[in-house]
Amino acid sequence: MIGPQMTHMLIWNELQKMEQMYMLHLFLAVMVADVGLGTVKGLLTKKMDSTAGTRGLVKHLTMLVTTLFGFFFADIAGMGNYASIFIVFGIIQYGNSCVENWCQMGLPFPRKWRTYLNKLKDDDGNLIDYPNVFKKGK
């Protein structure tokens, strides 16, 4: 018989498992790095936009909550491996966004790798050379 204690123990065990899962920690770290780099980029390029910032925070929060709840319920259902795959793709996408923000601040990044990022190209497909926001005289 499953009583309230069993339900609480199940939830507690799942939360402990999530706390020990390093992919979730990495996902959260890359997400925070993306938000941080985006904010720094906005400040340094003098293109800070509260509407875009709020929309971005809502998007990130939604992604975080969806990922945590999705992992929690998928693991209970015995499908934790599928949830882990979803988290890996999330890490890749947030990492991609971090690289885009980094490059849009004009910071060094191999040109060969930048060619794969459409956000760093103009309408004709040519790479945009962003000015380094940390150089003096800007």
Rank of each mutant, 00 (worst) to 15 (best):
residue 40 V to F: 14
residue 41 K to C: 05
residue 41 K to T: 00
residue 42 G to N: 03
residue 42 G to W: 11
residue 42 G to H: 09
residue 42 G to I: 04
residue 44 L to R: 10
residue 44 L to P: 01
residue 45 T to R: 13
residue 45 T to W: 04
residue 45 T to V: 06
residue 47 K to H: 11
residue 47 K to N: 14
residue 48 M to G: 05
residue 49 D to H: 13
residue 49 D to T: 03
residue 50 S to L: 14
residue 51 T to D: 11
residue 52 A to I: 10
residue 52 A to G: 03
residue 52 A to R: 12
residue 53 G to L: 09
residue 53 G to F: 11
residue 53 G to N: 06
residue 54 T to K: 12
residue 55 R to I: 12
residue 57 L to F: 13
residue 57 L to I: 14
residue 57 L to R: 10
residue 58 V to I: 15
residue 58 V to P: 00
residue 58 V to L: 15
residue 58 V to Q: 02
residue 58 V to D: 01
residue 59 K to L: 09
residue 60 H to T: 08
residue 61 L to D: 00
residue 61 L to S: 13
residue 61 L to W: 05
residue 62 T to H: 01
residue 62 T to N: 06
residue 62 T to Q: 01
residue 62 T to L: 06
residue 64 L to Y: 09
residue 64 L to P: 00
residue 64 L to H: 00
residue 65 V to S: 07
residue 65 V to W: 02
residue 65 V to N: 03
residue 66 T to F: 12
residue 66 T to I: 10
residue 66 T to E: 01
residue 67 T to H: 01
residue 67 T to K: 03
residue 67 T to G: 04
residue 68 L to H: 08
residue 68 L to C: 10
residue 69 F to M: 13
residue 70 G to W: 07
residue 70 G to R: 03
residue 70 G to Y: 04
residue 70 G to A: 07
residue 71 F to P: 00
residue 71 F to T: 06
residue 72 F to T: 02
residue 73 F to E: 08
residue 73 F to Y: 13
residue 75 D to K: 10
residue 75 D to Y: 03
residue 76 I to R: 06
residue 77 A to E: 12
residue 77 A to N: 10
residue 77 A to C: 05
residue 77 A to P: 00
residue 78 G to V: 06
residue 78 G to Y: 03
residue 79 M to F: 09
residue 79 M to P: 00
residue 80 G to T: 10
residue 80 G to P: 00
residue 81 N to E: 15
residue 81 N to M: 13
residue 81 N to H: 09
residue 82 Y to G: 04
residue 83 A to M: 06
residue 84 S to I: 10
residue 84 S to V: 11
residue 86 F to P: 00
residue 87 I to K: 01
residue 88 V to C: 06
residue 88 V to Y: 12
residue 89 F to N: 05
residue 89 F to P: 01
residue 89 F to R: 03
residue 90 G to M: 08
residue 91 I to F: 08
residue 91 I to N: 02
residue 91 I to H: 03
residue 91 I to V: 15
residue 93 Q to D: 13
residue 93 Q to I: 11
residue 94 Y to D: 02
residue 95 G to P: 07
residue 95 G to C: 04
residue 96 N to Y: 15
residue 97 S to I: 02
residue 98 C to M: 06
residue 99 V to M: 09
residue 99 V to G: 03
residue 100 E to V: 15
residue 100 E to G: 00
residue 101 N to L: 03
residue 101 N to R: 05
residue 103 C to I: 14
residue 103 C to G: 01
residue 103 C to R: 12
residue 104 Q to A: 03
residue 105 M to N: 06
residue 105 M to Q: 07
residue 105 M to S: 07
residue 106 G to V: 11
residue 106 G to W: 09
residue 107 L to E: 09
residue 108 P to W: 02
residue 108 P to V: 10
residue 108 P to F: 02
residue 109 F to Y: 15
residue 111 R to G: 00
residue 111 R to C: 07
residue 111 R to T: 15
residue 112 K to S: 14
residue 113 W to E: 12
residue 113 W to T: 11
residue 113 W to V: 15
residue 114 R to N: 05
residue 115 T to G: 05
residue 115 T to Q: 13
residue 115 T to S: 14
residue 115 T to M: 13
residue 116 Y to T: 13
residue 116 Y to G: 15
residue 117 L to K: 07
residue 117 L to C: 08
residue 119 K to E: 14
residue 119 K to Y: 04
residue 120 L to A: 08
residue 121 K to H: 11
residue 121 K to S: 10
residue 122 D to G: 09
residue 122 D to M: 11
residue 125 G to Y: 11
residue 125 G to V: 13
